[in-house]
């Protein structure tokens, strides 16, 4: 049963068409990786899916689906007067300390982080905090926009492990933007290659042929070929 159906989706900023005629479906419990070069419209696609941007076409979620969203980055200063504990409190509703402890465990963060400032923790830690923040809302789907830079490879690797752990344990559907094809091969159940329009869609090993990668990324394919296991 599909949890999301996208038909003829297009997004324009002024006269600039950023996404064009995107069609795909996501099954419940799937891990969809959206890949593509910089400026391909990956973040725009993610934002359109949850109505953060105006779009043309159809984005149809299953009824009563709850969506958690982890943005690529936050515009906050390092000295922002807001502790991680307070950040969790911003959700409102009856948030118990036990529930916070529980979600922190999901994302493998120590409780001490609650007293730290949201601006002073590392980017990797902040991403985990954001994932925990969205998990508090008991989402059915998690939309995860990977940061383009500023994060080391091992840190990113463990965040993916944590995400798949969440997917298995909580039965989440995950839609993520990724730059790491290695990760896509290993964990994604389906992949969407994007460069303004959809270039491929399907199971990673089938659709991520050398030709596809060549047309998606241009001449960079050699870099990816020796990476997958």
């Amino acid at each position: 049963m599909s949890i999301l159906e996208v038909r003829k989706l297009s997004v324009e900023f002024g006269h600039n068409r950023v996404l064009e005629d995107i069609n795909f479906e996501v099954e419940r419990g799937a891990v969809l990786a959206i890949i593509g070069p910089n400026g391909a419209g990956k973040t725009v696609l993610l934002k359109s899916l949850i109505g953060l941007l105006p779009y043309n076409g159809v984005v149809q979620w299953a009824p009563d689906v709850r969506i958690g969203y982890v943005p690529q980055r936050m515009d906050i200063e390092t000295d922002v007067p807001l502790t991680v504990r307070e950040f969790f409190g911003l959700r409102g509703g009856g948030l118990t300390p036990d529930r916070i402890r529980e979600v922190l465990e999901f994302v493998q963060l120590d409780e001490h982080i609650l007293n730290a400032g949201l601006g002073e923790i590392s980017i990797g830690q902040r991403q985990r905090v954001l994932v925990a923040w969205s998990v508090i809302g008991s989402p059915d789907v998690l939309l995860f926009d990977e940061p383009t830079a500023d994060i080391d490879v091992t840190g990113q690797e463990s965040i993916y492990k944590m995400l798949y752990h969440l997917q298995k344990n909580l039965g989440l559907t995950i839609i993520l933007v990724s730059h790491d094809l290695n990760v896509v091969y290993r964990h994604a159940t389906s992949v969407l290659c994007l460069n303004r329009s959809k270039l491929c869609f399907g199971v990673p090993r089938e659709v991520l042929s050398s030709e596809q990668l060549l047309s998606l990324y241009g001449g960079e394919k050699a870099f990816f070929e020796h990476k997958h296991d």
Partner: peptide, 12 residues
């Protein structure tokens, strides 16, 4: 505060 931290998260 949430609007200040991230408009996208707030809207979501």
């Amino acid at each position: 505060a949430l609007n200040m931290v991230s408009q996208d998260i707030a809207q979501s």
